[in-house]
């Protein structure tokens, strides 16, 4: 259900929104995890809404909070290196595999790197995915230095001249600065061989306002270039990703909506916004 459906239903056929309607809009925005701050901003812009063009105006208001940056994977001269990062359990490994699958089915040659050497069976998990989608996985031993695995993968990717290298990393909470420093090291080490073209932060759609802190600190540590919002097949609306776009100008690039390899798509803002409003 769209977050504004109730509001829009009330607004239809009215020339102005009465105070009760604002309450409904506020509730819907908050319930979608846009957070009190962004909600207040949107409400403020929405005060001038007139019933007739309410939908268009709302879409415009929301649009104005989205990032203007490109949502495409950025071009790389050589191998496109994508680093997948995020807090624990958001869907990094799954998304890395899904992205590899998407690129592969678009005709690119892709390699995966098992940069999570910490969590139990994380390497096996990515290898299982690699076998499933037919993409080779570069891995070291469990407990190996993640930067070393990433470095080996970069060298192998450069040698094989593949189009993309996607590096999975261990989940880490953004408030652990030693683990954040480790991520910075992975980045620097890879860049000795190949420039990193994308750092994608995976945000679970169920995440609340803490998502903003996650994005802020990951961006400081490794210069995040885009978001992947996962688990949109559930009941969560993932509004914190909009709050992140609005606050930090980091664009959502992909969405995950299921556990299968094809449950993944580039983010379409128009579709997303009209989905919010019209469903």
């Amino acid at each position: 259900m769209g977050i504004f459906s109730k509001f829009v239903a009330k607004l239809k056929g009215q020339s102005t929104a009465d105070p009760l309607d604002w309450k409904v809009l506020e509730e819907e925005l908050l319930a979608a995890d846009l957070g009190p701050k962004l909600t207040a901003e949107i409400l403020k812009s929405a005060q001038g809404l007139k019933g007739d063009d309410a939908l268009t105006s709302l879409t415009q208001i929301l649009n104005s909070h989205l990032s203007g940056k490109s949502r495409a994977l950025s071009d790389a001269n050589t191998v496109g290196v994508v680093l997948v990062v995020g807090v624990n359990g958001t869907g990094k490994t799954t998304s890395a595999a899904k992205l590899a699958n998407l690129l592969k089915s678009s005709g690119f040659s892709v390699m995966l790197a098992a940069g999570d050497t910490f969590r139990a069976a994380a390497v096996d998990q990515l290898q299982t995915w690699g076998a499933r989608i037919g993409v080779s996985v570069i891995s070291g031993k469990n407990g190996a230095e993640p930067a070393a695995v990433a470095f080996d993968a970069a060298v192998a990717a450069k040698e094989s001249k593949c189009n993309f290298l996607i590096i999975d990393t261990a989940g880490r909470l953004h408030n652990k600065s030693d683990l954040m420093a480790e991520l910075g090291k992975v980045r620097r080490v890879v860049e000795k061989t190949l420039p990193i073209s994308e750092v994608l932060l995976v945000i679970d759609a169920t995440t609340g306002q803490n998502g903003i802190a996650q994005a802020k600190i990951f961006a400081e540590a490794v210069d995040v270039t885009g978001l992947i919002v996962t688990k949109l097949d559930g009941s969560a609306r993932g509004g914190v990703a909009l709050a992140i776009e609005s606050a930090l100008d980091i664009p959502i690039k992909f969405i995950g909506n299921g556990e299968g390899e094809r449950d993944f798509a580039p983010f379409e803002p128009g579709q997303y916004l009209s989905g919010l409003i019209n469903d």
Partner: peptide, 29 residues
């Protein structure tokens, strides 16, 4: 770290499989 969806999800699990207690994870964040 879960947001407003905690309500829908907790209710869906309570009405579905049902549960007797709750465990909060990742509190070191």
């Amino acid at each position: 770290m879960i947001g407003q969806d905690s309500v829908r999800t907790a209710q869906a699990f309570q009405e579905g499989v049902g549960f007797d207690g709750v465990v909060l994870t990742k509190l070191d964040g």
